[in-house]
Amino acid sequence: MRHARHESRKQYWVIWLYLLFLTLAEVGAANISSLSRIWVVSALLLLAVVKAALVGLFYMHLAHETNVLKWTVVIPMASPVLYAFVLIAEARWRLL
């Protein structure tokens, strides 16, 4: 059991390193001026989703929960993305 907790401690530090690295990658991506805006925004959104997933799965222990609890959390958390896509696209369309 103690060994398992030692392993989990190590895993928490590895996740911390990933989060640090991904934050640096975000700052780097935001400062790239040679890429077109759509690529920069896509990269930033992808990095944010990966970081949020790492926090949810490992620090909030969702990876160790049952599938019912996982979906209970993921569906309401992810559905605003759909509304956002529709509403922001509509707002941009009215500008055209």
């Binding site: 991506a29 925004v41 930033l44 944010a48 926090v55």
Partner: peptide, 12 residues
């Protein structure tokens, strides 16, 4: 905060 940082601060 991860989401706020990306959406409010980083999106160029």
């Amino acid at each position: 905060w991860i989401l706020v940082f990306t959406l409010i601060y980083l999106i160029p």
